[in-house]
Structures are given as structure tokens and as C-alpha cells.
Nucleic acid binder design. Structure first.
Lengths: 337, 337
DNA sequence: CTGTTAGCGCCTTCAC
DNA sequence: GTGAAGGCGCTAACAG
């Protein structure tokens, strides 16, 4: 037998549809007499009633839905930030569950645009972008006029929106200071693609400290094509060709670092004696490596939690918390340095 | 200025709302005069009209949405199957875009149940489960009475539903045959958790061939707690304690294999001379390793494409293709064996 | 080819 | 504490 609608429940119980609606709701249930409420709820369960959220969304103008944009679904760090966001959004005591619509942009502006339009057509209550690149600025700015837009992980230079961020500049600086302490005189960065602020900031923070401490960097920046281990592996040749040869490498993320490590191993060089490697993010694999990876732990919980908080307060129209301080990542020293 | 609804467009153009609806639709556009159609479309663009998909969903009874259940968002293979599904679902020439609702179960039946209920309340047009475990059978069976349910990657013993699968049994057999060819006499499996059919089938296929070829396996099965590299790493002790010591290990997936490799390396044993390792799935990392991993390539495209096809035909009510043959995975020989 | 009409299922005033 | 009524924005029959 087909599942009933509120109207049918109402008929069966001889009450009005609105009573059913109230009895089944979280916030208006107190308006209905305890006994009718229980009667209604029992009947709802017994009959297999299932609320129609598309109808509720239309009527309310809010869909209990947030759109999430991520550059790459294979990136553990992004996924973990999203997990934290979702967890936080649905742990709320009273608040009704929010369903995330998750999609990846692959850092293609056209994809970002298309997805944002879909989200807006689906009447999402907010958009969280972890995928923002400069090319998306306009699209995001426009979206922000219709619905709250939150930036997480990646910020945008020319667009001020509520953000949940890691202090990547400081992250880079932390690595440089550590390299300085260890006595390195010549070091090298393997940078991720520069379309996002993230890698840029890490590079700047690192270089600033190097300059200050008189540590030498190669004149030409080394960029990996993607922030993946395969791409990282390919950059080792370029690193070793710089002269004098660096004794430590700061890879802009752990995947790059792992690629480098495997390449170094193939050459028969020793880590960290011949060359030290530090990564960024502290993915799980960092601990599994035979030589566990020194890296900078990304403040996943903080960023995710803060993003969720922003979403919540913007949806309910609370005062958006003012410019918030980015979270400081933390150096994790292991065996590759 | 706020974005207009169809009604407002209709008023501005002096036509009926239904004309707007038709002109803007894909399949009914031909019913409206070319000039009015263009006039409507131009006005829609100029005014920034944005269709309200929550309203359309309510009216049509179809939400242009599919629910996707995945056990673990960090698993590259699952993600790639999902990517293929989404790509295929949205590449359709005429078919309107389908938005996926993606969520992970972490293999917790309670999570699966909650998510399926959310999906049904949101009136998804279909559910694709890559996360099916025995514990979910009832829930899935019940869901299948309301909406098409497709199983991908993982099948279910007691529940016959349209499925897109890999022949895991054959995958295990392929590895065993290869080990036999290489002359191994004592081998060992490191199995994934047994709540899903996948690992069970791989184990059976492998063992059947071993028995047939007279290859020895340890009497007690070795199970990793999770299908991750960290868990795989921990199993090496157990493997080396079996006697006689195996000369080859079949890890039920690449993450396990990588964990084992790192553990083997820590001990100073050589791969493949002292011990050979084969994985399953062929994740990207398999090629990046200093000693590239021999593994069984998962038929990602085929499984994803087939799942998408099933979704399409079940949604449109076409005859569901009969019991389909699982796709055969392919051995990729590299350097760890 | 276009208009008329009638809801989809829910929530929310406004009465009583 | 409950009922009556209206409508969110869209689409689908049915006329003409």
C-alpha cells in the first residue's frame, strides 16, 4: 500500500491537515494537545508516513540543504573538512537535518559555475566553497547576493566573504623556521598549482622566513602540475638540478611529498641524511610510510567546525561573526627530516 | 532586483504561465511558436530567471535526484566509480541533469538506514548503494519497494536487485593463478573486513585456485581491521608468524598492500625477492611507489557506466536489463611480484 | 499553437 | 487547541 500524505492521515483521524503538520513538527508540536499529538505520531509511524521534503521546501522557501563545492573528491584533507562540516551541521540538538549536496569542480571555472547554478535552482540554504579560485570570484560574488556563501580552506583576495581558513602563510613559515633550526642552508619548495591562495600563501610564508634567516632558495620556483604524488614524483629531477643542491625540500602537501620520497628512494638517496622532506596536511599515509613523514597538520576540525558555525548563523540570520582569525596549523616532526 | 518566477515572466510578456513553462522546457519547447519561444528565452536570460527545482520536483513527482551511498569517501576506487556514474548520468544528450546526493555510511547500518530515509523523504528518483552489507538487506529491500534501488560494487547474497559488479571471485583467482605461475608454493591472503561480499569473494576465488594447484595457505585467515594501509601494516607480524613463511601475499586491496610494503621495508626485507605482494584496485599510488605495485585493476568505468545505465532505464521505466554479467578485473604486473 | 484549470504536499496565517 | 483557507512555483491535462 502506498504511503499516505498528511491529508490522508488527517482524514483517517478525523482531524485537520494542519493539526497533523503541527503534531509532526519539531517546533509547533507544543501547540497541539498531548493526546492528539501522540495519536498522530503513532498513526504516522504505523502507516509508514514519510514527509515530503520537496513539498516542505517549496512551502517554506528553504530546502534544508547546503551546496558544497570541493576541487577534488580524492583529496583526503578536503573530505575530512567536509566530514566535520556535515557532522557539525547535523549534530545540532534542535535544528533539523541538513542534507549536503556535494560536487567537485576539478578547478574548472565552468564546472563551478554550472554547479552553483544547479545549487541555486535547487534552492540551497547556503553554499560552502572549498574550491574557490580567482576565476570563480565573480560567480561566487553573484551567488552571495542570493544566498549565504561561505569560503572554507581557500580564500579569495578580491572578495570578502565569511571564511573558515588555515593560516597557510604561517604554515610555510613554521616549516622554514624548523629547517633553519636543523641547520639547513639551502632548501627548496615544491609548490602546488597556483590557482588557489593556499599554495601561494605557503610559499610566501616559507620564503619570507628563509630570506630573514639567510637560507638559500633556488632562483626559479618549482611547480608541480597537480597536487598529487605522481606530479610530485616528476619534480625531483628539477629539484636535484638546482645548484647548490638543497638539503631539504618543503612540499606543499603530503601527496607531493610522498611522490618525492618515492622518487628519492628510486635513486638510492637516503632520507633524511641526503635530503630531508617535509609535507603539509598530515594525511593518514604520512604515518604509514616506512619512514614516517614530517608534515604540518592541517587544522581540519577547527576549519570544518567554524565553517559549519558560519553556515548555521547565516542561515538563521544571526549576526555573522566578524572577520575571524585563521587557524594555525601545527608542525608534526617525524623521520623524514 | 529579485529574480522573477514564471508567473512574473508571463505577466511581463502577456502570455500564460504554461507557455513560459513549455518554452523553457527541453521536451515541450517544440509545441510553442519559434518566435514566442525565443522571446521567452531571451526574457528569461535577461531577467535572470532561475527555475525552482523544488517546485518542479513537487509537481512532477520526480526530483531529478539520485541518492548515492558509499561506505567511505576516502576510498579512491569508490569515488571513481561515483565519478563515472555522475558523468554518465549528466552526459545524456536530452536527459535533464541529475543531481547526486552523496553520503557515506562508514559501514554502519544505522547510518545507512537514516540516509536512505532522508533520500526517500527527498523523493530521490533512485538509490545507488555501493555500501551494501548484509545488515542493510532489509532496509534496502524496503526502499526498493518505493524507488528503484541499484547495487554497485558490493552485491547482496539474499537480495536480488539490479547490480553493477566486478567479478571479485575471478579477481582473486587471477592472482592465485599468477602466483602459481611464478612458482610460489606457500602464500597468504590479507583479507579486508568481511561485512561486504567483495572481500569474501576475492578470498574464495583465491583459495579455490590455491587448493586446485596445491598451493599452501596458512590454516588461519588473517583479517585486517579496516581496508586501510594503517591496518594492513599491522598485519605483517601475523603473516610472518605463519609457518612455513609465505613467499607471496595477496592483499585484498591496494591500501592494505601499501601498508604491508612499508612494514616489510621497515624490517629490511626485500620485495619481491624475500616476499612478493599483490594488491587489488590499481589506485594511482600503485604506480608512484618506488617499487610499483602489482595489482588487479578494478573495472571502474564498466561498473560505473553500467550502474548509470541501470539507473536511467529504471527511472524511465524501461525494461530492466536482465541479470548482467559481472565485469572481469585485469591483472597489472609491476615490480612487487 | 496557446490558454484554462487544477493541483503536487506541505506550512502558516487567521479565525474561532 | 483546532479548523479553514490559501498559496509556495511549477507542470500536465484538456480545451479550443
Amino acid at each position: 500500500m502506498r504511503r499516505p500524505s498528511m491529508k490522508e492521515l488527517a482524514e483517517r483521524l478525523g482531524v485537520d491537515r494542519s493539526t497533523i503538520s503541527r503534531a509532526l513538527s519539531e517546533d509547533k508540536a507544543h501547540l497541539v494537545a498531548p493526546e492528539t499529538r501522540e495519536k498522530v505520531r503513532k498513526m504516522a509511524v504505523d502507516s509508514g508516513y514519510r514527509p515530503d521534503l520537496t513539498a516542505a521546501a517549496l512551502r517554506r522557501g528553504r530546502s534544508q540543504t547546503v551546496g558544497v563545492l570541493v576541487p577534488d573528491l580524492e583529496n583526503e584533507t578536503f573530505i575530512n573538512v567536509i566530514r566535520t562540516i556535515i557532522g557539525s551541521l547535523n549534530s545540532g540538538d534542535g535544528t533539523p537535518a541538513t542534507t549536503p549536496l556535494i560536487a567537485e569542480t576539478q578547478d574548472r571555472p565552468s564546472a563551478a559555475q554550472r554547479l552553483i547554478e544547479t545549487y541555486l535552482s535547487r534552492r540551497v540554504d547556503a553554499i560552502i566553497s572549498l574550491a574557490s579560485t580567482e576565476a570563480d570570484e565573480e560567480i561566487l560574488a553573484e551567488a552571495a547576493r542570493e544566498v549565504p556563501v561561505i569560503l572554507a580552506v581557500r580564500s579569495l583576495a578580491a572578495l570578502s566573504l565569511p571564511s573558515a581558513l588555515c593560516d597557510d602563510r604561517e604554515g610555510g613559515a613554521i616549516v622554514a623556521r624548523y629547517f633553519a633550526e636543523r641547520g639547513h642552508k639551502t632548501v627548496c619548495q615544491v609548490r602546488g598549482p597556483l590557482l588557489a591562495t593556499t599554495f601561494n600563501n605557503r610559499a610566501q610564508g616559507f620564503s619570507a622566513v628563509c630570506a630573514e634567516k639567510g637560507i638559500k632558495e633556488p632562483p626559479e620556483a618549482i611547480h608541480a602540475e597537480h597536487a598529487t604524488s605522481a606530479a610530485g614524483k616528476k619534480t625531483l629531477d628539477a629539484v636535484l638540478q638546482t645548484s647548490p643542491r638543497p638539503t631539504a625540500i618543503f612540499a606543499h602537501n603530503d601527496a607531493l611529498a610522498i611522490g618525492l620520497i618515492e622518487a628519492i628512494r628510486e635513486r638510492g638517496l637516503r632520507i633524511p641524511e641526503d635530503i630531508a622532506v617535509a609535507g603539509f596536511n598530515d594525511i593518514k599515509m604520512a604515518q604509514v610510510l616506512a619512514t614516517p613523514l614530517t608534515t604540518v597538520a592541517y587544522p581540519i576540525e577547527e576549519v570544518g567546525e567554524h565553517a559549519a558555525q558560519l553556515v548555521r548563523s547565516l542561515i538563521t540570520g544571526d549576526p555573522a561573526p566578524g572577520q575571524s582569525v585563521p587557524f594555525i596549523p601545527k608542525l608534526v616532526i617525524r623521520r623524514t627530516t
